[in-house]
């Protein structure tokens, strides 16, 4: 979606449901993020992001992309950075 189309969408369909959907699509399609598994919730003037990513840089970029697609809302980035442990115990099948 172009910036112009995005702004037009933002101004004409501001119901929270559409804002959350737009942000979720942007997080998936924007090359800075490409994150498909993020939960997006809008409550009043607040937007919440929840999920897991591989590093802090990827989490930070999500705040930028969400903010650009939800003008006027405060973005609360509650995404956690995954901690990858060692292989642990094996399972016998």
């Amino acid at each position: 979606m172009s910036d112009e189309a995005r702004q037009q969408a933002a101004s004409s369909h501001d119901a929270p449901h559409y804002v959350a959907a737009r942000v979720q699509q942007a997080l998936a399609e924007d090359e800075r993020t490409s994150e498909l598994g993020v939960r997006v919730d809008v409550r009043g003037d607040d937007l919440y992001l929840r999920g897991q990513v591989e590093c802090a840089e990827r989490r930070a970029r999500m705040t930028d992309v969400a903010g650009e697609n939800a003008p006027g809302l405060k973005v609360h980035n509650e995404v956690t950075v995954m901690e990858v442990r060692g292989p642990g115990e094996e399972e016998t099948l």
Binding site: E83, V84, G86, P87, E91, T92, L93
Partner: peptide, 8 residues
Amino acid sequence: GRAYAVYC
């Protein structure tokens, strides 16, 4: 949550 799982 771990680098890999191991199945025997």
